[in-house]
């Protein structure tokens, strides 16, 4: 996919979270956004997911500008899958309903077909035994895999993952990253914000470093992570290597 962000500004009150961000990527299958917390990664992803609109500037994906109008925006959101850091599953539904309900209510599947598809996805992520559990009964890793299944269930054009492993311990992180790798293998287009540098390097083809609301550096993932050119990127990556 081709991504173009032109002078994108996003302010919350007096806080300028994205400060005229410019980012153009001609072709990527998996883009990793890295950078310090509060630097603007999540906000960038929310804008790309159509969850919020930029204060100013334009965003184009494959040449199409993301709409601002409610109805078009809702339509756009239905074609994008989103996975959040805190899973954001619905606590009052069991795992299978969390996946099946949007298929039925938003994407027009029959109940039977939505449950069938949800069941298949749960099997794919080794969650069949947990299909009738509520989110409170699932571990963090299991919850996040259910959330990934929910995001990809309607076969979205793009899957956006906002720090999907930041709330997890190393073992659960591994199980979620494995699930994400299967998405990459199945040629899903991914946008992911992450603090997992190793994962960003080997799984993503492109890496963009965002800090203080601006683009710091963008390019081939191993190139950017191993040989950062700018001082800001070097400082950020050095902090990772140090500890």
């Amino acid at each position: 996919m081709k991504l173009e962000l032109e002078s994108v500004v996003k302010t919350y009150g007096t806080q300028r979270v994205l400060d005229s961000l410019d980012l153009t990527i001609e072709e990527t299958m998996c883009l990793a956004l890295i950078g310090p917390s509060g630097g603007g990664k999540s906000t960038t992803l929310r804008l790309l997911a159509g969850l919020e609109s930029p204060t100013s500037g334009t965003i184009r994906i494959d040449g199409n500008e993301i709409a601002h109008e409610y109805r078009q925006l809702r339509e756009y959101r239905q074609r994008v899958g989103v996975v959040f850091q805190a899973y954001n599953l619905f606590p009052h539904f069991d795992a299978i309903t969390n996946i099946a309900l949007p298929l039925e209510k938003v994407h027009g599947y029959s109940r039977g077909r939505s449950l069938e598809k949800a069941g298949m996805l749960l099997e794919q992520f080794q969650l069949t035994n947990h299909r009738f559990k509520k989110p409170a009964e699932l571990s963090g890793g299991q919850s996040q895999r259910v959330a990934i299944a929910r995001a990809i269930a309607p076969d979205p054009d793009i899957v956006i993952l906002d720090e999907p492993t930041s709330a997890l311990d190393p073992e659960m992180t591994a199980e979620v990253l494995e699930a994400i790798e299967t998405l990459i293998e199945s040629k899903k287009k991914l946008l992911i914000a992450t603090h997992q540098m190793g994962f960003a390097k080997h799984a993503a083809d492109t890496v963009a470093i965002i800090a203080e609301g601006k683009l710091v550096e963008v390019g081939n993932s191993s190139q950017v992570i191993e040989y950062p050119r700018t001082a800001r990127a070097q400082k950020f990556l050095k902090a990772y290597l140090k500890f």
């Binding site: 969850l51 959101r77 959040f84 994407h107 929910r150």
Partner: peptide, 10 residues
């Protein structure tokens, strides 16, 4: 977060 999730789902 629940409302955001509902929004993201469409």
């Amino acid at each position: 977060s629940q409302l955001l999730s509902a929004k993201a789902i469409g």
